[in-house]
Simulated scan of single mutants.
Amino acid sequence: MKYHVKINDLYFVSWGEDGTQPTFTIDDNLDRAHKFESDEVANEVADRIGGEVVPVEEDEG
Rank of each mutant, 00 (worst) to 15 (best):
V56L: 07
A33M: 02
E57I: 02
E44M: 11
V41A: 09
D59Y: 03
E58N: 11
E44G: 06
T25D: 02
V53K: 04
A33C: 05
R32F: 03
G50M: 04
E52D: 11
H34R: 13
P22F: 08
E17D: 15
G61R: 09
I7Q: 08
F36W: 06
D27V: 00
V54P: 06
Y3N: 03
V53R: 03
E58A: 15
D59I: 05
D27L: 03
E37A: 15
V54Y: 08
L10T: 02
Y11I: 04
E37P: 05
G50I: 05
E44C: 06
D39S: 14
T23P: 05
E40F: 11
K2T: 09
M1L: 13
N43A: 15
A42M: 04
K35G: 07
F24V: 04
N43M: 10
Y3L: 06
R32M: 10
T20I: 06
G61A: 06
P55L: 11
E58T: 08
M1E: 15
F12N: 00
K6D: 01
D18K: 13
F12K: 00
T20A: 13
S38H: 12
A46L: 04
L30S: 02
G16T: 04
N8T: 07
G50H: 10
Y3E: 04
K6E: 02
E58M: 11
G19L: 09
P22V: 02
E58F: 13
R32T: 04
E44S: 09
E60N: 07
I7S: 03
F36K: 03
D39H: 06
I7W: 07
E52P: 03
H34S: 11
V41R: 07
L30P: 01
H34G: 01
D59M: 04
S14A: 15
G16Y: 12
G51P: 01
K6S: 02
T25Q: 02
S38F: 10
N8W: 10
G61N: 07
L30E: 01
V5L: 06
I49E: 04
E58G: 07
W15L: 13
G16H: 11
H4L: 12
T23R: 14
K6M: 07
A33I: 03
E17V: 13
M1R: 15
D28K: 03
I26N: 12
D27N: 12
G61P: 02
I26M: 09
E58V: 10
D18R: 12
Q21E: 12
W15G: 03
I7K: 12
A46R: 00
D39Y: 05
S38N: 14
E57T: 05
D27F: 06
V54H: 07
D18E: 15
A46E: 06
D9T: 05
S14D: 15
G50Q: 06
E58W: 09
E40R: 12
S38M: 08
T20G: 09
G16F: 09
E44A: 10
K6G: 00
D18P: 03
L30K: 02
F24R: 01
K2V: 04
G19K: 12
P22C: 10
D39M: 09
D28G: 00
E17S: 13
K35M: 15
G50S: 04
E40Y: 10
F36L: 07
D9F: 08
Y11A: 01
V54L: 11
